[in-house]
Amino acid sequence: MPSNVEIKAVVRDPGLLTERAKQLSRSEGTLIRQQDTFFRVEKGRLKLRHLQDGTGQLIFYERPDMDGPKLSNYSLSLTNDPEGLTKVLSDALGVKGVVKKERYLYLVGQTRVHVDTVEGLGQFMELEVVMKEGQSVEEGEAIARELMQLLGVKKEDLIVGAYIDLLMADKQE
Rank of each mutant, 00 (worst) to 15 (best):
S3R: 13
N4L: 04
V11P: 12
D13W: 14
G15V: 14
G15N: 15
G15W: 14
T18D: 15
R20M: 02
R20Y: 08
R20E: 05
K22P: 02
L24E: 07
R26G: 11
T30I: 14
Q34L: 08
Q34Y: 11
F38R: 05
R40G: 00
E42M: 01
R45P: 04
L46R: 01
L46C: 02
L46D: 01
K47Q: 00
D53F: 12
D53M: 09
T55A: 09
E62G: 02
R63Y: 12
R63T: 13
D65Y: 02
D65T: 06
D65F: 05
D67V: 10
G68L: 05
K70H: 09
K70L: 06
L71K: 12
L71C: 04
S72A: 14
Y74S: 00
S77P: 02
D81R: 05
P82F: 01
E83G: 05
E83W: 12
G84K: 00
G84P: 12
L85T: 10
L85M: 15
T86I: 00
T86M: 03
K87P: 08
V88N: 02
V88E: 02
A92H: 04
V95L: 06
G97K: 04
G97H: 06
G97V: 04
V98D: 10
V99R: 10
E102Y: 01
L107E: 10
V108E: 11
Q110P: 09
T111M: 07
V113E: 10
H114D: 13
H114V: 10
V115G: 06
D116K: 10
T117R: 14
T117Q: 14
V118Y: 13
E119K: 06
E119S: 11
G120W: 06
G122Y: 01
L127D: 12
L127Q: 13
E128R: 09
V137W: 03
G140V: 09
G140S: 11
E141M: 13
A144P: 03
A144W: 08
R145L: 12
E146K: 13
E146G: 01
L147Y: 11
Q149C: 02
L151C: 06
L151R: 08
V153G: 01
K155A: 14
I159L: 09
I159A: 06
V160Y: 02
G161E: 10
G161Q: 06
A162M: 01
Y163L: 07
Y163Q: 04
I164S: 07
L166G: 01
M168W: 03
A169Y: 08
K171Y: 09
Q172R: 15
